[in-house]
Amino acid sequence: MIETSSIDAVIGSHAYDNDGHKIGTIGQVYVDPDDGHAIWASVNTGFFGTSESFVPLENATMDADGVRVQYDKAFVKDAPRVDVDGDLSTEDQETLYEYYGMSVGNTGTEYDTADYTDADLRDTVGGPGRDTSGPNTDSAMTRSEEQLNVGTQKVQTGKARLRKYVVTEQQNVTVPVQREEVRLEREPITDANIDDALSGPGLSDEEHEVTLTEERVVVDKETVPVERVRLDKDTVTEQQTVTEDVSREEIELEGDDASLRGKNRDRI
């Protein structure tokens, strides 16, 4: 049961069914004229206009999220249409009690069905321009939707530094080298060399020496600068696609065929 001291908090709060599904926003609360406890509440279930669904508050509870009633969302939504005009007649209550199975024959409990008038009505919350339309508001309701606000944020992704180290590798270089070799040549005695041949003794021991030379590879290393290396940054721009779910409110129009002029439902 909703405490009498909590009725003001009930008005304008969200109503949830027995499974935790949101039914709608509570607009008006009818209280018992004797002790002031809450009896009925009108719930705006998304229909445009002044016709709302009524739900009993006898076994309802209230927590931080809103009011929880002991009925299914679809069941409340399909409750008999009763005009929210400030009065809740005996006939209206009997129809609602029968729909919710709260008559004597079904529950064994007898409920009073006195005529509830404006004196027993706690007004709807808000005024013109609020989401709930009723006797204290204008004939419009606000439709809202979520919009994506996408921007960029610069974050550090890493660091880069220059580090120099020594690598040793082998190089193969081909260098031409020369050396001298002994070659024995024999020439016959001719008129051109006869004098040289007879210039010495006839028979003698003699030695003739020739010095041989060769080139050897000499390796020397020197360190020379070959290039300059520095760090620099480039800014690269690319396209990224952001996917996110956004919610929006939709407004349904329901009513009799005659009032809708041939259309049973419209959605905005």
Results as ranks from 00 to 15, higher is better:
residue 58 E to K: 13
residue 95 T to S: 10
residue 30 Y to N: 03
residue 109 T to E: 06
residue 71 Y to A: 09
residue 221 K to S: 07
residue 152 T to V: 08
residue 246 V to L: 10
residue 179 R to N: 08
residue 97 Y to T: 03
residue 28 Q to C: 07
residue 234 D to H: 09
residue 95 T to E: 06
residue 221 K to I: 04
residue 250 E to A: 13
residue 89 S to Q: 00
residue 246 V to T: 13
residue 190 T to H: 11
residue 236 V to A: 02
residue 14 H to A: 10
residue 172 N to Q: 15
residue 88 L to F: 11
residue 69 V to W: 02
residue 151 G to H: 06
residue 123 D to V: 04
residue 188 P to G: 15
residue 152 T to D: 05
residue 258 A to C: 04
residue 266 D to I: 13
residue 245 D to S: 13
residue 122 R to L: 11
residue 1 M to H: 07
residue 91 E to W: 09
residue 261 R to V: 01
residue 192 A to Y: 00
residue 110 E to N: 11
residue 146 E to M: 04
residue 200 G to K: 01
residue 30 Y to H: 00
residue 189 I to P: 00
residue 160 A to V: 14
residue 184 L to H: 06
residue 122 R to S: 09
residue 222 E to Y: 14
residue 227 E to M: 00
residue 151 G to M: 08
residue 267 R to Q: 15
residue 77 K to C: 03
residue 180 E to G: 06
residue 21 H to S: 10
residue 91 E to N: 12
residue 194 I to C: 11
residue 35 D to R: 08
residue 129 G to M: 12
residue 130 R to Y: 08
residue 89 S to N: 03
residue 50 T to F: 11
residue 54 F to C: 01
residue 206 E to N: 09
residue 18 N to M: 14
residue 268 I to G: 03
residue 60 A to S: 03
residue 191 D to H: 11
residue 70 Q to P: 01
residue 146 E to P: 00
residue 165 Y to I: 07
residue 24 G to T: 10
residue 168 T to N: 13
residue 97 Y to A: 05
residue 174 T to L: 06
residue 92 D to S: 11
residue 174 T to G: 04
residue 118 D to P: 07
residue 189 I to D: 05
residue 29 V to S: 02
residue 223 T to W: 08
residue 3 E to W: 07
residue 203 L to E: 15
residue 179 R to S: 09
residue 125 V to M: 06
residue 76 V to Q: 07
residue 109 T to Y: 09
residue 107 T to G: 06
residue 223 T to G: 01
residue 250 E to N: 06
residue 79 A to V: 07
residue 137 T to P: 09
residue 135 P to W: 08
residue 37 H to F: 07
residue 130 R to L: 03
